[in-house]
Structure formats: structure tokens, C-alpha cells
Design a protein around this nucleic acid. Structure first.
Lengths: 217, 217
DNA sequence: TTCAAACGGAGTGTTTCGCTCCGTTTCAAC
DNA sequence: GTTGAAACGGAGCGAAACACTCCGTTTGAA
């Protein structure tokens, strides 16, 4: 943490304040105006434009941060010696941190950087490994595929109340149901219906859709 | 179905076409412009204004239709002699028909009519009964409350792909996980975490939020 | 005292969108 | 045929939303 006093120090602190404000605002309303972010951050919005060339850059940054968090949590899960606990713990942390929500809601509103694409690939690989290890532990039902995680995270992200704390609580409750559904069962277990989801068909989000204000020529 | 030929018959047919188009359009984008609905329906948008005084009326109608469908499906579920099957079947039908999606997405964009409030109450009562009967059957885990249904439906509604058929498939798959989570288990079963959801706190959606264009003075 | 980094926010140009209005088409009645 | 009204299509209007620019002001280090 920077500890510079004075104008410069304030500026550095504002960096974090603005990002945090933006996160909260866009979590509530993905198409919120820039002004709303500035207001929540308690700054004028020229403070925003000093840092980001435009709205799109800000959205990118936010999304990329989420992606990095995703990767970090996946790494943590992979470090767990218990494959099942590694997976479920990972899911719980992602849901708790509300990481997936932003990514999903903002997807398609900006063009990703090459670096983001790299990280996305990496995140995918990690998730695959996470699921593989859970399978090996024998506690994950065998017909679950890595891309099922996406559906699951998306479902959890859909739970949202005005109060963030309460939201987390209810998501935990809901997630408990889901995780119990994921777990292998010695009793008769009918296979999951339908063709399993596939990475390809889940990527349509990222195709550019109108949003994020007006581009400049 | 009306079978009048000619202009009048076309008009009656358009009633249904327009509603169907509106449903699909707003399912994709809840804040879509009226013009998009007209275009999808293949009519000029004055055909819309002949039927609805404004955008808000159309949204209301759509939402109310969904509510009625909800009630109808609940009644069907209640008619099942098996309480558990009555509940799960009901959920599956609601998810399959994409009823909850519209309701949730459109909530707060219009002021509900008194009649809608009545129907909402009725729907609630039915859901409570549905859950009660499932509990009595012994196959629903005992710590599930009626309002958990809302979370569940919302989670399912969050799964959405460009292809409606594929969307239905994946939702079924996802729902299979959830329903397995709902079912009582003779084995050790940890209680669901957190305070159970409560009707009160789930009603914030219906408080009016800016949307649906501009009101007239 | 000076100066540049950081900032606040009114103003601008543009786009979006709900809705009105009017001319046109279609069909039934006569 | 003729007519009249129901139904329709869509140009265009007015208002609002919003990203972004610009410039005057503040602040703190030198």
C-alpha cells in the first residue's frame, strides 16, 4: 500500500477507490453511466478520465481483475491435497467474491486484449485440472464436465439482493444444494440429461454486443 | 383460435404474433426498444400502439401472462397424487417454459395492477402448498422452505444461450443437479446454511426502478 | 512564490427511444 | 362500383441519457 501523503498520495488512493466503486456500480447495473461510478467513488469524473481513456478501458480493467482473481483462486484450489475439497472450495470462493458476476455481465461490452485471452485460456486449463482432480478423488459424479462449472457459477451469480451480505448468505445456501447435486452417490444415480455443455457454445458472450457508450471515430 | 379471414382476422392473428414477438425480444433484452418488437413481429409499430397504450402496458401484459402460467402449472402440480413429483414436475415445467425469466427481468419496470397483486398472492399460496405436500411425502429435505423456490428458479433462468432449444437442454441438466440437492437423503445431511430466504426480502424487485422509457406527464 | 499535477463539473455533441400523426391499404356493406 | 372505417406503416418530433471535452480551480512540493 502506498503511504505518500499529499496530492500524489491521494491520487494513488483514488486509484483503488475508483476501481472499487466501479466494481460495485457495474455489479448493480452493468450499463450504468460513468457518472454513477464517479459519484459512488466521491470524485468528479474527470478523475476517471485521467486514469482511463474511456469507459471501455475501465470495463476491461475490471474484467481482467476478475479473471486474475479467478486464476488465483483456482491455483489455491489446486494446492489442496484433496481434489474434491479443492474444487468445491474454489467454487465457494469464486461465488463468495462475486467474481463471475462481473465477468458475465460485462462480457461482450468491450473487446478483450490479447493478454486477457491468454489469461482466459489459462483459467480454462486450471478449471479443467481442478475438475479432473475432483474426478480422481471419486467424490465428483462422473458425468460432470468442466464446462458445467460455468453454468453453475452463472446460476449462483443470478442470486442478487440489495444487501451484499445477505446475497452472500443466500448464495451459500443455494450453492449447498448444487454441490450436493455434484457429489457422487453410491445409490442409483441417473445420468445428467442432455449433451454436456461445451466451451465453444459458452463463448458467445464474448462476441461484441452494443454497449459501453459510443465509440469515437 | 379465430378463423376470420380478411383484415379483421389478420388483426386478431397479429395479437398473438405481437405478444409472442414481444416475449422473445424482451427475453433476450429486457430493455429492448418497442421498435425491436415490431420488427420481430413483422409489423409496423403503430400496430403495437393500437393495442397497448404504451410500452408499460405491454410489459404488464407479458408479465401477467407469465404469472397466470405459473398459477396454471402450480395447479397441475397440485393435482398430482405424489407430492414430490408434483413439486419437481412443476419446477421443471416453469423452467422449461421460461416463465420465471421474463417475470424477473421485467419486474420493477412497471407498476403492477391490483389484479396482478391478487394473482401474485394466489401464486404464492400455491407454491407454499406445493412445498408442504412435498414435505409430507418425505422426499423433500426438511429444511427447504417455499421461498427457496424463488432462488432456484432464478438460478435456472440465468442460464441462457442464443439457441432457445439448447438453453432448455442445459437448464434441464442444471436443474437435475439442483433437484438432486433438494431431495431428502437418509445419509448424513448437513443442514442448509444461512437463514432461509423470506418472502419479504425477495420482493424488492417489484419496487419501481427506472426503465420502460419515459412516462408521459 | 511558483508551477504542474490532480481535480471538479458545466457544457457539448450525439444517439436512442417512446410516441404522435398522417397518408395508405384492405375489406365489408351496400 | 363506391364508400367508409378499421387496420396499418413509418417518417419525424421532442426529450432524455450519456460519453467525453474543456477550462478554471485547488493543492502541495520545490
Amino acid at each position: 500500500m502506498e503511504k505518500l501523503p499529499g496530492r500524489r498520495g491521494q491520487a494513488v488512493r483514488n486509484d483503488a477507490i475508483i476501481l472499487e466503486a466501479a466494481r460495485n456500480v457495474f455489479l448493480e447495473d452493468p450499463s450504468a453511466p460513468i457518472a454513477a461510478v464517479a459519484e459512488r467513488a466521491g470524485v468528479g469524473f474527470s478523475a476517471l478520465y485521467r486514469r482511463y481513456a474511456g469507459k471501455e478501458q475501465l470495463l476491461r480493467q475490471l474484467c481482467h481483475d476478475g479473471l486474475k482473481r479467478f486464476i488465483a483462486e483456482a491455483d489455491t484450489g489446486l494446492a489442496d491435497s484433496d481434489g474434491w475439497r479443492g474444487l468445491t472450495g474454489f467454487i465457494e470462493r469464486i461465488v463468495d467474491a462475486d467474481v463471475h458476476s462481473l465477468t458475465v455481465k460485462l462480457a461482450g461490452t468491450f473487446t478483450p486484449t490479447p493478454e486477457m485471452n491468454e489469461d482466459a485460456k489459462r483459467a480454462n486449463k486450471l478449471a479443467v485440472t481442478l475438475v479432473k482432480r475432483a474426478h480422481e478423488s471419486g467424490r465428483l459424479r462422473s458425468d460432470v464436465v468442466p464446462d458445467d462449472l460455468d453454468l453453475l457459477l452463472e446460476g449462483c451469480a443470478a442470486i442478487r439482493l440489495p444487501d451484499p451480505d445477505r446475497t452472500r448468505q443466500l448464495r451459500k445456501r443455494y450453492l449447498a444444494l448444487l454441490i450436493r447435486g455434484l457429489s457422487a452417490d453410491d445409490a442409483k444415480q441417473e445420468p445428467l440429461p442432455g449433451p454436456a455443455p461445451d466451451a465453444q457454445e459458452l463463448n458467445w458472450r464474448w462476441t461484441r454486443r452494443p454497449q459501453a457508450g459510443t465509440a469515437k471515430p
